[in-house]
């Protein structure tokens, strides 16, 4: 918390090699954005972005990414806590399973979801017969696909924070009479808040950008399952200007949220 401030004075400039390599690194991110900006049909932007297709996609993307983040928080934080705090048999395997969506191609994840939770899937079929609920081709399917790919970001961040947290804070709270729930609420969660917020933001950003698992599992229907990335992909085949306008919109939304959150709440502890 109490860091010495490094003053500019007396510190020589950073090595040129590092600056050059960093510039190349930055270019990897900036050049594609530049390409997008060059292609953007600025004049018709307002008209392009106010079409039904676009407004539906924005609404659906926000709803599903936020819902996926909330679900990730509700079930992902307890999962991270178990992984960090309880030494149960097979913990390494469970950790691997949780992190699998990070490396698995999202399309594979979507196919797996389809085979498991589809109307004819091993879990989906009994679910459908009991409740009539069909997850594919529904907004719940979109949310599930987004949760599948985004929750690992939250779990990995929160577990890391829990592992590096001095356990004695929790011990001190317990010795002062706080029950386990109170310790979690009043000590553990506040102390890992920066990581928790970072994990939530990363999970949300991943959910917002989710494409492969969604189109494979949930399909693509305007207003029901067509999120912004899907709308971009479909529009690329038929309506390039709309595709570019949508891409630009995603960049603006994501960048705004990431920058604002980073400066407001997501400070490294």
């Amino acid at each position: 918390m109490d860091r010495p401030t490094v003053t500019k004075r007396g510190v020589s400039g950073p090595p040129l090699v590092i600056v050059l390599l960093a510039a190349v690194g930055l270019a990897v991110f900036v050049v594609p954005l530049f390409g997008l900006l060059v292609q953007t049909p600025w004049g018709g932007l307002a008209r392009l972005l106010s079409s039904d297709v676009v407004l539906d996609a924005i609404r659906l993307s926000l709803v599903s990414s936020i819902a996926a983040t909330v679900i990730s928080a509700v079930v992902g934080v307890p999962l991270a806590w178990l992984l960090a705090r309880v030494d149960f048999p097979g913990r390494a395997l469970v950790r691997g399973l949780v992190l699998l969506p990070l490396v698995l191609p999202p399309v594979v994840g979507g196919a797996a979801l389809l085979f498991a939770l589809g109307r004819r899937g091993v879990v989906g079929e009994p679910l459908y017969e009991m409740t009539g609920l069909v997850l594919p081709f529904s907004t719940w399917g979109v949310i599930l696909a987004a949760t599948f790919v985004s929750m690992p970001f939250l779990v990995i961040t929160v577990e890391g924070a829990l592992n590096s947290l001095d356990r004695r804070y929790e011990g001190a709270a317990a010795s002062l009479g706080a029950k386990r729930g109170a310790v979690l609420r009043r000590i553990t969660l506040p102390l890992i808040r920066p990581s928790l917020v970072a994990g939530l933001v990363l999970a949300w950003a991943r959910a917002l950008g989710e494409f492969g698992a969604t189109i494979t599992f949930a399909g693509n229907l305007q207003g029901r399952t067509q999120t912004l990335p899907l709308a971009v992909f479909v529009a690329l085949e038929s309506d390039r200007d709309t595709a570019i306008a949508l891409s630009l919109l995603m960049v603006v939304i994501s960048l705004t949220v990431l920058v604002v959150l980073r400066s407001r709440w997501w400070r490294p502890s």
């Binding site: 589809g118 004819r120 081709f137 189109i215 494979t216 399909g219 229907l221 479909v234």
Partner: peptide
């Protein structure tokens, strides 16, 4: 219920019975 981006994606979902 869905507008698939290509014919292969459509076939996969039909073959799976979804």
């Amino acid at each position: 219920d869905t507008n698939e981006p290509n014919v292969r994606a459509l076939l996969t979902k039909i073959a799976a019975g979804e």
